[in-house]
């Protein structure tokens, strides 16, 4: 298994429309919902916002990783959205978020393999070059390919 099973083409949007955090959240939840990753859209949304209440998931470096672990999730999925002009995410460093990874994890995590992949992605995001490449991405296929290389 590799990351391409968690992020399919339909879950990548290199040109997010929303210009606020809430709009981007809605947009990306819809992406996940369209692929059938969610059982209950509203319940998942609630889990996301509950997590945001604990502290912003804007971790700096232009990255935000809104994530929700919820019964409302059918299968582990990641949606990736790019907002070149950036969105205010209450980030710790005040920087706007440009790379947004929305993570959906079911409460009953069947295998650790999915978590392992999320771990690899998290580590990879700390790599400056990798972030630069994502910020300059033009084609969805390229992004899929880069994700596939994360092992």
């Amino acid at each position: 298994m590799n990351m391409t099973e968690l992020v399919t083409k339909e879950l990548i949007n290199l040109n997010l429309q929303g210009s606020t955090k809430d709009e981007v959240m809605e947009e990306m939840i819809d992406m996940l919902n369209r692929t059938g990753a969610l059982k209950d859209r509203e319940m998942y949304k609630k889990a996301l916002y509950e997590r945001e209440m604990e502290g912003s998931t804007g971790i700096g470096f232009g990255i935000a990783i809104p994530h929700g672990k919820s019964e409302a999730v059918k299968r582990t999925s990641i949606a990736f959205g790019l907002k070149r002009s950036g969105v205010d995410w209450d980030s710790l460093d005040g920087e706007k978020a440009k790379l947004i990874f929305m993570i959906a994890v079911p409460t009953e995590q069947a295998g650790n393999e999915h978590l392992r992949i999320l771990q690899l992605l998290s580590r990879k995001l700390m790599d400056d070059d990798f972030r630069e490449r994502l910020l300059d991405a033009r084609k969805v296929d390229d992004v899929v390919q880069w994700f596939a290389q994360i092992i």
């Binding site: 994530h67 994890v105 999320l118």
Partner: peptide, 16 residues
């Protein structure tokens, strides 16, 4: 708390 992402980002960053 969730043990999904931050844990590993911090680990990677500290190591680097």
């Amino acid at each position: 708390p969730n043990g999904i992402a931050h844990t590993y980002m911090a680990a990677e960053k500290l190591a680097k």
